[in-house]
């Protein structure tokens, strides 16, 4: 890595640390989740947050958007939401007597898809396709989505009523899935004592903007990855494919997800290269929603696919 590059990387790390700090002012006691959410954003992936209502999913998304200086759109998913409500539609213009395309909320840098599993599969897939392709095709015309483009989808636990759970193939399109969980005692107290979160968000100053974020994203892709680390990722992939504990192994996309997430994390941590440690940190959020455990045995021990992999696969 030459010096100008390493300077850029250092600057990126600084900005990201600052952003994390800002977000942590609003979202209390959730430093790990904030770090993972930023990792996901830097890795140009999309994030799925799964938790019960009221733990701050929306607030987290809103805060990130504000701090990153991205234009923010929230789409509340309901069972009667239609694909055109997300993508936009062609509407007849009487004066010019022609159809005119009205862009839907998806044409933003930062989208919060709230309670994504309340909508019908058809609507879900409209969003998920846009996420994957980073473009939208309506009425035969293809329109590029703005860059950077980042989706945070929130999901209620699947067993709740009135949900259409996302199929595995759709889950795979999210780089990470995280849980927020309840705040600890200290954070809870601070939250109860503190000011209104909504107001706080409005007063937060953006740390970066869309253009800077793109530079940071490019910087993350340049983080050095040693052969030994690729060996480790391949060992993980091979293990998930051969072990009888899993229904299916990780896809090649899953492998890339691990690598990209680890690179972004390394950048956030200010490391010049990726360590197995980074893989282990992102493992749970990258891997758990892509793998299905075959036996209840591990579930009963409170183990997830990720912890099982971390504890089993030798580091080359």
């Amino acid at each position: 890595m030459n010096s100008s590059n390493s300077n850029l990387a250092r600057a990126s790390t600084g900005l990201l640390k600052q952003a994390a700090k800002s977000i942590a002012q609003v979202i209390l006691g959730k430093d790990d989740q904030i770090r993972l959410a930023l990792t996901c954003l830097v890795a140009q992936g999309h994030l799925l947050i799964e938790d019960t209502p009221g733990v701050g999913k929306t607030t987290l998304a809103h805060t990130i958007a504000q701090v990153m200086g991205l234009d923010f759109q929230r789409i509340q998913f309901t069972s009667d939401l239609l694909p055109s409500d997300i993508l936009g539609a062609a509407i007849y213009n009487r004066e010019q007597s022609s159809f005119e395309f009205h862009k839907g909320p998806v044409f933003s840098n930062f989208i919060l898809a709230d309670e994504v599993n309340r909508a019908t599969p058809k609507t879900q897939s409209a969003l998920l396709e846009a996420m994957e392709e980073r473009q939208v095709t309506v009425e035969g015309a293809t329109r590029k989505l703005p860059q950077p483009f980042f989706v945070i989808a929130t999901q209620n636990p699947v067993h709740q009523l009135g949900t259409y759970p996302l199929p595995e193939s759709q889950l795979d399109r999210f780089l990470m899935r995280i849980h927020l969980g309840y705040p600890d005692k200290k954070a809870e107290r601070e939250l109860l004592q503190g000011a209104d979160r909504r107001e706080m968000i409005e007063h937060l100053k953006p740390v970066v903007d869309g253009g800077k974020l793109q530079t940071i994203q490019k910087q993350a892709a340049k983080i050095h990855v040693a052969d030994a680390l690729l060996d480790y990722i391949q060992a993980v992939l091979e293990f998930t494919r051969n072990s009888p504990m899993f229904e299916f192994g990780l896809s090649p996309r899953g492998g890339l997800a691990l690598l990209n997430a680890a690179r972004s994390l390394a950048l956030i941590e200010g490391q010049e290269y990726v360590l197995p440690e980074h893989i282990k940190i992102v493992m749970a959020s990258v891997v758990n929603h892509r793998l299905e455990l075959c036996t209840d045995e591990l579930d009963n021990q409170g183990k997830t696919a990720a912890s099982y992999i971390s504890e089993t696969v030798p580091i080359p």
């Binding site: 197995p276 440690e277 089993t312 030798p314």
Partner: peptide, 9 residues
Amino acid sequence: KLPSESADE
């Protein structure tokens, strides 16, 4: 050192 343990762990 366990085989699956990273250097940091």
